[in-house]
């Protein structure tokens, strides 16, 4: 009993220490994390942060440059850009995280299953993953949106599908290297269920590459939404979304009202930048080979 209570503060301290060590060793990664946290706070508490409604048109204040009233200016419809960017963070993070987690989870399941069962299951799954890998992503996304129409959940579906095979591939190769390890064999011969072996022994061992990939996926999903928006098939009004804002702004106002084109672009670039930096640092920190330097 006492051992447990004693244990807690120590652990907390070591967690704190680990964080500090991370920050010291990975200044860029920490910077990335800070960006991610800012975006997350913006997304979570948009209602409190945003000074204006993200959707209310204000025809008295159309395409106004940045000012005290509108820090980042207003867009074509007189909507406050800062408010739209703050709310847009929520859309971006929903798209980023849902796509990454769903795509990652499916990839994890398929990858581990492929590696664990091997044989014909592996063969079939590998061929399916090959097909999905080889299929041009943007075309798949275009088709999915054309079938179901735009809308956040459809856009997420369109972005998620291509992520699955890429995750499955990486997970499978990590899992394969573990499969032959004696303790898995031992677990098998001692009659543990497949699920138990997979969950208890294989999954924890592929968590590191999986996590690193997740952070990359979040960024990629946010970018993919922007690409779809450029083709007119991303998230649509009235949902505030960065890709949507950037498309309209860059296409028509890059020269006459550059703030409409610049700020949403910066929001996307910075957030994806943050996730990438953080992901890189995470990889360096987790990868044992990197740690020993």
């Amino acid at each position: 009993m006492t051992a447990v209570t004693d244990d807690l503060p120590v652990r907390r301290r070591s967690w704190l220490a680990a964080s500090l060590r991370f920050a010291r060793r990975q200044p860029l990664g920490t910077f990335g994390l800070v960006i991610v946290v800012i975006a997350a706070i913006a997304g979570l508490s948009a209602e409190w942060i945003a000074p204006y409604s993200p959707t209310a048109n204000d025809f008295a204040a159309m395409t106004e440059p940045p000012s005290a009233a509108h820090w980042l200016g207003t867009d074509q419809f007189g909507r406050d850009l800062l408010s739209r960017i703050v709310y847009g963070a929520r859309t971006a993070l929903i798209i980023g995280f849902v796509s990454a987690f769903v795509g990652g989870f499916l990839g994890l399941v398929l990858g581990v299953a492929s590696a664990y069962f091997g044989g014909w299951i592996d063969d079939v799954l590998q061929r399916v993953m090959d097909i999905l890998m080889a299929f041009p992503l943007i075309i798949m996304a275009l088709a999915v949106v054309a079938i179901f129409g735009t809308g956040v959940q459809n856009v997420i579906a369109a972005i998620t599908v291509p992520l699955v095979p890429r995750c499955a591939r990486v997970v499978r190769s990590s899992a394969l290297s573990i499969r032959e390890v004696p303790y898995i064999d031992a677990a098998r011969t001692s009659g543990f269920s497949h699920a138990r072996i997979i969950l208890r022994h294989m999954v924890p061992n592929v968590v590191a590459p999986f996590l690193i990939m997740l952070t990359a996926f979040v960024g990629q999903a946010i970018l993919a939404e922007a690409s779809l928006s450029y083709l007119g098939l991303g998230v649509q009004e009235p949902t505030p979304a960065w890709g949507l804002m950037l498309q309209g702004g860059a296409e028509e106002y890059a020269s006459t009202a550059p703030w409409i084109a610049i700020f949403p672009g910066l929001a996307i670039a910075l957030t994806v930048f943050g996730f990438s930096l953080f992901g890189d640092a995470l990889r360096d920190a987790i990868d044992p080979k990197m740690r020993e330097r």
């Binding site: 129409g149 735009t150 009004e237």
Partner: peptide, 11 residues
């Protein structure tokens, strides 16, 4: 409360 669904020409 209105949402928008945008479709390419054919659909």
């Amino acid at each position: 409360k209105v949402t928008q669904r945008v479709l390419p020409t054919g659909p």
